[in-house]
């Protein structure tokens, strides 16, 4: 067994510097790497390019990095839940690249899988395709999109072991598996770090080969963005 376990978040984020590019798993606030984000706030690294489907809310998730103006550029598909984000973007302080959600997922997966680029129909004929190569296949138009390049990928999983194997829960899975192995260093934080051998190899979502560092995360808030319920009849 190749050991990927590190003692804590401090060790896990060693090598993080100003002006780096990071990928973050998570959809809305679900499945975000809370511990890594908190540590980035503490380290106060600046000039960051962040690849994440969303930008958190004003006081949680990537919103915490925005508050400290640590982010130079954001690459996302939907940023509608964050007023500070909108303010920084409209004032020009923050550079923003909005891309289709499926394209975001696939650009991560392409980086993970060793594809430099791929064709997708998403965004053809829109401003998203401006300046990009297009090509017709079987009578339909497609846009060439490139794999992401990032220094660190920050992943949140439900369970994991010292070998770096990961299991996700519910829709907290989202972009997390696609971003594993897509950056130079993949850092996974887990709710439960279990002894090696405890996870059933049949049930592992991401094999440890895609993970460089894994640690037991602490104090998960797991904030719910839209609490919707039905009445008991």
């Amino acid at each position: 067994m190749i050991n990927k376990k590190v003692a804590n978040v401090t060790e896990a984020l060693q090598g993080v510097k100003d002006d780096m590019t990071f990928m973050f798993g998570g959809f809305g606030l679900s499945g975000i790497p809370e511990n890594a984000i908190a540590q980035l706030v503490k380290l106060n690294v600046k000039g960051l390019t962040c690849i994440s489907n969303n930008a958190g809310v004003d006081d949680f998730g990537l919103g915490l990095l925005l508050q400290q103006k640590q982010i130079k550029k954001m690459i996302s598909s939907y940023v509608g839940e964050n007023d500070e984000f909108e303010r920084q973007m409209l004032s020009g302080e923050l550079e923003v690249e909005l891309i289709p959600q499926g394209t975001l997922a696939e650009r991560a997966r392409a980086a993970q899988a060793g594809f430099p680029a791929f064709y997708t129909p998403a965004g053809y004929g829109t401003e998203v395709a401006e300046g990009k190569e297009t090509r017709e296949f079987n009578g339909k138009m497609y846009v060439l999109e490139h794999a992401f390049k990032a220094d660190f990928g920050f992943i949140k999983a439900w369970k994991g072991d010292a070998a770096g194997n990961l299991v996700f829960k519910g829709t907290a899975r989202n972009f997390n598996p696609n971003m594993c192995g897509a950056a130079n260093i993949t850092v996974a934080e887990v709710e439960e770090l279990v002894p090696v051998g405890e996870l059933d190899p049949n049930q592992i979502h991401i094999p440890g080969i895609f993970v460089q560092r894994i640690f037991q995360g602490l104090h998960y808030e797991k904030r719910i963005e839209q609490r919707t319920v039905r009445q008991r009849s």
Partner: peptide, 10 residues
């Protein structure tokens, strides 16, 4: 209004 396309374009 700048919220993004989410999955709509795909």
């Amino acid at each position: 209004m700048v919220k993004g396309m989410g999955g709509a374009m795909d």
